[in-house]
Amino acid sequence: MFSAKIWKLGDDIDTDIILPTEYLAFETVQEMKPYAFSPLRPDLASKIQPGDMIVAGNNFGCGSSREQAPEVVKALGVSCIVAKSYARIFFRNAINNGLLLIEQPDLFDEVSEGDIAEVTPGKEIKVNGKSYDIASLPDNLTEILEAGGLVKAMRKRNGLD
């Protein structure tokens, strides 16, 4: 269980918004961090503190397959994203980077930015005294997430860790 401050975004947050193309070629994710979400909210990246969470509507992460998008969200220290639904490439990329994604249909409409949530992965999220059920991920994804991402899972496969 962990608690996290909520930053709220809308529907169809595409990966060009999460990180525009002009910043994709930076050599490190650290250099990309200040530009996360800049087309929509230029000041958001500087406000997000490690441990905070993002709450969004439908189709979070749609568009480009750029994996820099979940990597930069992870690098900002975001503990998890709770959305009504995710675009499929973003979903895979996030899990592969060890970023926890939670699908929850009701929470988005009932919470405000700045609210504090208590998250118990695979079980529930509590906000403002109300509890929201959340499902577990499929086994093969839980394995990748628990290994700390796909790179670590592959290193294990290759006998390196």
Binding site: S65, E67, R92, N93, V151
Partner: peptide, 21 residues
Amino acid sequence: DSHTVTYGCVGAFSTGIGYTE
């Protein structure tokens, strides 16, 4: 790249993925 879906035009299964995959 997400537009890897283009090769469906010839009846191939193709889709975009991230660089780690």
